[in-house]
Design a protein around this nucleic acid. Structure first.
Length: 277
DNA sequence: AGATCTACCTGGTTGC
DNA sequence: TGCAACCAGGTAGATC
């Protein structure tokens, strides 16, 4: 389930592998993996060169020349990667992007969009259109670019559970279930605490905890649980640093109290009833 | 308006 | 063993 650190890692890996490559042909095997007309999608990409690979929130953004932007949302199980030369698409490979350099063994020849659960999608934007996209336009600030002093203000006037707001991409971008739970633990805040009841100082601490956990996760190339792999098929390492995520029923690593699991905003949320108030 | 709930989808795990 | 029930979770869309 790629969140900000995982999408960041994938973008950096893809950048190394495919910038400068030109698309020859796009084979859309599952129309639903494309938002919009798959035939238009394929035709528009043919002949374009990958100019850069970036990220905004949990979106991968591939910029092409002549100008065109491909936004890819991996949702839970999506993967975008350069397969081995002899690898065959399987039933979950929904789009195959073929590059032009078929006769150059050292260069990537394809890019696979693979998604077991089919929640992910690819969507194409003409120059300047990305920022008109409703979803994109409403995204909140990037947590690693936000001034620390501005973080507490994100929750001004909000009465929802703090975790529900951390997961809301319009409040702050790129945070998912893992990093929400991990940052709340590090800040000593219960996931179901109402935002309006949390002091300014504790909201500041949450911002700092979130930056720390995201930065450490990026340094570890993300967290690998189940499906996640980076653009080269490598696992991340941050799952070894989880304090609470996936540890319900086991002892708190700080105080030994048994970690509890509750549902907040429809998501399993693991926390320590002694360390988090 | 904000808050909350559910559908979407498949594979792995659990329980009988 | 077989199979049904449940769980994972980001976002859109519906409802309260």
């Amino acid at each position: 389930m790629p969140e900000l650190p995982e999408v960041h890692t994938i973008a950096r890996g893809l950048e190394r592998q495919i910038v400068g490559q030109t698309i020859a042909l796009v084979d859309v095997k599952a129309p639903r993996a494309v938002h919009g007309d798959p035939a238009v999608f394929s035709a528009a990409l043919a002949g374009r060169r990958v100019a850069s690979v970036g990220r905004r929130a949990k979106l991968l953004l591939l910029d092409f020349s002549p100008p065109l932007t491909l936004a890819v949302h991996l949702k839970m199980t999506g993967r975008l990667y350069v397969p081995a030369r002899d690898a065959q698409p399987d039933k979950h490979t929904h789009i195959v992007f073929h590059f032009e350099n078929v006769g150059t063994p050292s260069a990537p020849d394809r890019l696979f969009f693979h998604d077991v659960r089919k929640f992910g999608y690819c969507r194409l934007f003409a120059a300047g259109e990305l920022t008109q996209w409703e979803f994109y336009r409403r995204l909140g600030p990037e947590p690693l670019e936000l001034a620390p002093a501005a973080f507490p203000e994100l929750f001004a006037g909000r009465t929802a559970a703090i975790k529900a707001l951390l997961l809301d991409q319009r409040v702050i971008a790129g945070v998912g279930n893992i990093y929400a739970d991990e940052s709340l633990f590090r800040a000593g805040i219960r996931p179901d605490a109402r935002a309006s009841t949390i002091s300014h100082a504790r909201r500041l601490a949450l911002g700092a905890a979130l930056r720390e956990v995201l930065t450490a996760a990026i340094a570890a190339c993300g967290s690998s649980i189940r499906d996640y792999r980076d653009a080269s098929g490598n696992a991340g390492a941050f799952q070894n640093s989880f304090q609470v995520y996936g540890r319900a029923g086991r002892p708190c690593l700080v105080c030994g109290h048994t970690l509890a699991a509750i549902k907040v905003a429809g998501r399993t949320s693991t926390y320590c009833g002694r360390c988090q108030k």
